[in-house]
Simulated scan of single mutants.
Amino acid sequence: MAQLIEGLTVEDVRANVERVRSEIADAAARAGRSADDVQLLAAVKYVAIEELPVLAQAGISLVGENRAQELERKVAAPGGGQLTWDFIGHLQSRKVKTILPLVRMIHSVGSASVVEQLGRHAKDGTKILVEVNIAGEEGKSGIAPAALDDFLDRAQALSGVEVVGLMTMPPLAADPEDSRRWFAALAALAAARGLPELSMGTTQDFPVAVEEGATIVRVGTKLYL
C-alpha cells in the first residue's frame, strides 16, 4: 500500500492547485476551450484524513475517494463536510446504498449488479458516469464500447438516475501522448450519445485529456507533493 500523504500546508497545496489550474487553462486554450468547462477533482485516496481541512483552506472544493469505507470516514471527519465528494473507484454493488447519500456523482458505474442496486436505492437527481473499458483491457473494470448502448439503455431507464457522461482509465503509459487516442475515443462515444460529461485524465496525463475534451480531471499527487 502506498504511504499516506501527511504534513500538508495550506500554502504549498494552494500553490500546487494554482499550477494545476494553469496547466488546465493552457491545455483548454490549445483546444479552443474555456478552462471554466473543466472541473478539477482532487483524488484523496492516499491523503491522510487529518489533512482534509488543509485542502478546503487551500481552495479545493471537489474531491474524489476510491474506497467506500474511506469515503464514509472522510465525509464524517473534520473538514470533510466542507468538501463536495464524488466516488471514483471500483464500486461493489453492496456498497451502492452506503455511498449514494454521501456523493454528488458516481464516476465508476460499470456492471449490471451496480445498476441493479442503483435501481433499488437511487433518489431523484442521482448522477452517474458509466465507466468504459475503452482499450478492452483484460480483467479491467468497465463496459466494452460495443456493449455501451445496451448498458446505457438499462441505466437510463432507472427511476431517479441521470446518466450524465462517461469515465475511463486508459492503459498505463509512460508517455501521456499514448493516452490521447483513448481519450479521443471516449469523447467520440460521449458526443455520439449526447452525454456532456467526460471524466478522464489523472496526474500524469490530464493536460492531454483536457485537449481531448475532459470536463473532469482527477488529479492526485501533483496537488500535494
Results as ranks from 00 to 15, higher is better:
residue 209 A to K: 00
residue 44 V to W: 04
residue 121 H to M: 09
residue 165 G to S: 10
residue 20 V to T: 14
residue 28 A to Y: 01
residue 121 H to S: 02
residue 170 P to L: 04
residue 108 S to W: 03
residue 45 K to G: 02
residue 148 L to H: 05
residue 223 L to N: 08
residue 128 I to Q: 12
residue 109 V to T: 05
residue 58 A to L: 08
residue 206 F to C: 05
residue 157 A to T: 01
residue 88 I to R: 02
residue 181 R to P: 00
residue 144 A to L: 14
residue 175 D to Y: 03
residue 168 T to L: 08
residue 69 Q to A: 12
residue 174 A to F: 02
residue 133 N to P: 03
residue 126 T to R: 06
residue 25 A to N: 09
residue 189 L to I: 05
residue 70 E to Q: 14
residue 85 W to A: 07
residue 124 D to G: 10
residue 110 G to C: 08
residue 24 I to D: 08
residue 94 R to C: 01
residue 180 R to S: 07
residue 132 V to W: 12
residue 1 M to I: 08
residue 173 A to S: 11
residue 176 P to V: 05
residue 197 E to P: 00
residue 15 A to D: 13
residue 185 A to G: 07
residue 29 A to G: 02
residue 85 W to V: 10
residue 142 G to D: 12
residue 167 M to T: 11
residue 37 D to R: 03
residue 170 P to F: 09
residue 9 T to S: 15
residue 175 D to V: 04
residue 91 L to N: 05
residue 139 G to C: 00
residue 15 A to H: 08
residue 211 E to A: 13
residue 32 G to P: 01
residue 29 A to S: 14
residue 91 L to E: 09
residue 70 E to I: 08
residue 205 D to W: 03
residue 87 F to P: 02
residue 204 Q to D: 13
residue 202 T to D: 10
residue 145 P to W: 14
residue 21 R to W: 08
residue 14 R to A: 15
residue 136 G to F: 13
residue 91 L to H: 08
residue 77 A to D: 05
residue 88 I to N: 01
residue 61 S to F: 03
residue 216 I to P: 01
residue 60 I to P: 00
residue 29 A to L: 13
residue 88 I to H: 01
residue 99 I to S: 03
residue 26 D to C: 09
residue 115 V to N: 01
residue 73 R to T: 08
residue 135 A to I: 00
residue 187 A to W: 11
residue 28 A to Q: 05
residue 133 N to F: 11
residue 171 P to Y: 10
residue 221 T to S: 15
residue 199 S to M: 10
